[in-house]
């Protein structure tokens, strides 16, 4: 195995592009190193990117925040600005692993690991987060929603990697929330999850809504019918009933050791309901 610390994004892209064997990128390493130790993967090339420019920085940009790909969960969690703007994104990231893992784990690593159960992804999707990708042809931006394509798979082309995530600005009276179900209280993988992002008008009527569910399909799913159920309401019982029905209809989970199809579907609806109520309260709504 070769370990390389390239001195620029360009060189990193070239190294990745030229590599013929198994390649892994090291940001936080909380997936890669565990997989190596468990002998699930033996990379031929390990590329360390966390020292490159901007990788460990959170910068204010056009009312939103650009978060470097090697910013840890602990650093994100202590950033007052991101917490105030996108609390659901922060709480999703902070649910990953233990305090020790939080010192290394990154949102981009979580995204690129490609797990349908990735805790940081649903709230990034409902936030409309944008991933900045570097590759042999330079940089491009795509929605985070378009990055995962299936378990363990992403849409990134050969030689490409993500250098930052952009969380956009948002209006007043808006907020988000993320919830997951795990059999324990921490140190676990989501059996189902839901993120909700809401914008309210001055009367507490929902003007914009996004609902994403995790661990119930091959990738995180945005549920448009669930958004429609909330828009124009103040999350009354009828709206919530429709939200739950829309979420349950959008689930196509698997039966496995972590949960049954019925359980995942039912709890995804419950979590979406509860996350919507939290986001609504955070956005200043009173019901």
């Amino acid at each position: 195995m070769r370990y390389v610390k390239p001195d620029s994004f360009e060189n990193a892209a070239q190294l990745l592009f030229d590599s013929t064997g198994i390649t892994r990128i090291l940001a936080g390493g909380t997936d890669v190193l565990v997989q190596m130790k468990a002998e699930m993967v033996e990379p031929d090339l390990l590329i360390d990117l966390k020292h490159l420019s901007g990788m460990r920085e959170i910068t204010h940009e056009n009312g939103g925040f650009r978060i470097g790909a090697a910013v840890s969960g602990a650093e994100l969690g202590e950033h007052a600005g991101v917490n105030a703007l996108w609390p659901g994104v922060v709480e999703g990231m902070e649910l990953i692993g233990s305090t020790q893992v939080q010192g290394r784990a990154t949102m981009v690593g979580n995204l690129c690991n490609g797990s349908p159960a990735a805790d940081s992804v649903p709230a990034m999707v409902t936030a409309g987060a944008i991933a900045r990708i570097h590759g042999p042809d330079g940089a491009r931006d795509i929605p985070v929603y378009e990055v995962p394509t299936g378990p363990g798979k992403t849409s990134l082309a050969r030689g490409e990697f993500i250098t930052s995530i952009y969380l956009p600005a948002r209006p007043e009276n808006a907020s988000d929330a993320y919830l997951r179900f795990i059999p324990r209280t921490e140190m676990d993988i989501a059996v189902s999850s839901a993120a909700v992002s809401l914008e309210l008008d001055s009367k507490g009527i929902c003007t914009e809504a996004k609902v994403a569910i995790g661990a119930v399909a091959p990738t995180v799913r945005l549920v448009d019918d669930a958004s429609a159920a909330l828009i124009g309401t103040s999350l009354d019982d009828d709206a919530i009933t429709k939200l739950v029905a829309a979420v349950e209809a959008a689930c196509s989970p698997i039966d496995d050791k972590r949960g049954t199809i019925a359980f995942r579907t039912k709890t995804a609806g419950v979590l979406a309901k509860r996350a919507a109520k939290i986001a609504y309260a955070r956005a200043g709504g009173t019901s």
């Binding site: 468990a38 059999p183 324990r184 209280t185 921490e186 140190m187 676990d188 993988i189 050791k257 972590r258």
Partner: peptide
């Protein structure tokens, strides 16, 4: 199917 401490769930302190 669950030969690891991830899917063999012993209680953690917060439980």
């Amino acid at each position: 199917q669950n030969a690891s401490l991830l899917d063999y769930r012993v209680p953690v302190a917060s439980d």
